[in-house]
Design a protein around this nucleic acid. Structure first.
Lengths: 185, 185
DNA sequence: TTGATAGCGAACAACTTGTTCTGTAATCAG
DNA sequence: CTGATTACAGAACAAGTTGTTCGCTATCAA
């Protein structure tokens, strides 16, 4: 890919992310992005059809990366229990990696939470897949557990991340563990 | 209140609700509302500062009503267990009362889910208040249970409400019951 | 070096928002 | 019933936003 394309694309992503951590998505104007990223109007629309598409691409980039990293932790088989994937994820989030925490905690909640939840579903599937209780519809359980994790993170954020990742993860595990069959480790 | 005021206010609410069940909130223009409600521009802005305020007022109206109705069920002491408040609520929702179901199932999810969750928190407090396990922070538990209910409704909607209210409520109770101390009935 | 491509900047039409003005009709108090 | 008040309609308005187009320049890859 042309070096110029890559540079502007990244500049736009950076500018957009930065703006999102300060403003509501719907208050951000294309002009804001142009000014912040220092790119021309034409250039922006050459890269992204609309602001919506930019958002979609950014989310795919951001949350895809998070999940992949988290899943990587699973396969690295460092000896931890499967549960700890979520601990890793919380620790990862606390470092505000790629500004994700800013996005989740800003007024843009609604927009990103769904993307986030979608990714967490994948995570739940591959982490707990075999241990899901069969007494309830499988997809219901997966979605419930994913929603519980997202909710846990929101609660953590609402307390300004004062609690430790261990504490937060413990809460999450406490409310979801009864739904799983015994661990076979 | 002046009869005229009441009429236009209701016409605007009706038009807005109708539009929301068809379109995304951010795609709805003030002009759309004016045309649908058949009121003048000046009139609209005399009633609501902006479209955002209209949304806020509508939500307060809608969800406040739902919770009050649900809470009324509790105090009517018709002999049912406290759990059944949620069954009542699901049944209530299924009738698409005041078009709430349309709003929750449309593409406006994010907007209304938060209002809804807030109201459900109140419901959880007054229904399970005394039975919340003390091993976890109280507000965490309340929010978790409320989020679980909202998630359950979303799942139900995603299956186009094919399942019965009883079945849906059973799922919700199954995932939250382990978090409560024994019922003292 | 050269042809292709990415970017810039300015101007553009179309649309949206929220305000202001004037005139009309419904409502309410006495 | 009457007169004052209030709500409303309609039109016009400035300001801001979106997405497109055009001509021109800078950069890249071969």
């Amino acid at each position: 890919m042309d070096r110029r394309q890559k540079k502007t694309r990244e500049a736009i992503f950076r500018a957009f992310t930065s703006l999102l951590s300060k403003k509501n998505y719907h208050q951000i104007t294309v002009q804001d992005i142009l000014d912040t990223a220092d790119v021309g109007r034409t250039t922006f629309y050459a890269h992204f059809e609309t602001k919506e598409y930019l958002l979609r691409d950014l989310c795919a980039d951001l949350f895809g990366h998070v999940t992949d990293t988290a899943l990587g932790q699973v396969s690295c088989a460092c000896g931890d229990a499967a549960d700890s994937v979520f601990l890793h994820l919380v620790r990862h989030l606390r470092q505000n990696d790629r500004g994700i925490l800013d996005l989740l905690s800003s007024e843009n909640d609604g927009l990103f939470l769904d993307y986030f939840r979608g990714e967490v579903c994948r995570l739940v599937e591959s982490t707990y897949g075999a241990r899901l209780s069969i007494h309830l519809p499988r997809d219901y359980l997966v979605q419930h557990i994913a929603a519980a994790f997202v909710q846990t993170v929101r609660w953590w954020l609402s307390e300004e991340c004062t609690r430790s990742p261990e504490e937060v993860t413990a809460c999450f595990l406490a409310v979801t563990e009864p739904l799983l069959t015994a661990d076979d480790t």
